[in-house]
C-alpha cells in the first residue's frame, strides 16, 4: 500500500512532498517519540508515527528511510519542519486519529500483515 492510498482512504492530509506519495510503498509501522529509539527502530519503508513536530524528525526519517511521518491527532506542524521535509524529500502526513487508530487502520487496510 502506498502513502497516497493510505492517506486517501483515511482522509489524511499530506503536507509535504505529496507528489511522491503515489510511488512510496509503506512496509509496516513504528510508533515512538524518543528520537534515539526511532533511529534504531524505524525500518526501511516504515510509516513512522510521532507526536513531535520539530525539525529533527526530518533528519531521523531521512536517516532511517521511513516511507513517511504521520503526525497524529491533528497536531499542528511547524512551518520550518514542513520546509525541511520538502527539501529532504520526506512525506509528512497529518491525521486526526490517535497513533493506535492509525496503526490499526494500516494493519487492517494493508491486509493484516504484521511485519
Amino acid at each position: 500500500m502506498t502513502v497516497l492510498e493510505f492517506s486517501q482512504q483515511n482522509g489524511y492530509t499530506i503536507i509535504s512532498c505529496a507528489e511522491t506519495a503515489v510511488d512510496r510503498e509503506i512496509s509496516g509501522v513504528y510508533i515512538c517519540d524518543l528520537l534515539s529509539m526511532a533511529m534504531v527502530g524505524v525500518k526501511d519503508g516504515n510509516l513512522w508515527i510521532t507526536v513531535h513536530t520539530n525539525i529533527n524528525i526530518i533528519a531521523v526519517a531521512s536517516l532511517t528511510n521511513a516511507s513517511c511521518i504521520v503526525i497524529p491527532e491533528d497536531i499542528p506542524v511547524e512551518s520550518q519542519t514542513v520546509k525541511k521535509a520538502e527539501e529532504k524529500g520526506i512525506i509528512l502526513v497529518q491525521s486526526p486519529h490517535t497513533s493506535y487508530e492509525i496503526s490499526v487502520r494500516y494493519y487492517v487496510q494493508s491486509g493484516g500483515d504484521p511485519s
Binding site: L34, L35, S36, M37, A38, V40, T50, H52, N56
Partner: peptide
Amino acid sequence: EMGFGAGMGLSNIKKN
C-alpha cells in the same frame, strides 16, 4: 521536549 535526552545516545553508538 524535542525527543532527545533519553540517555540513549552513547549506548546507541556503542551498540552500533
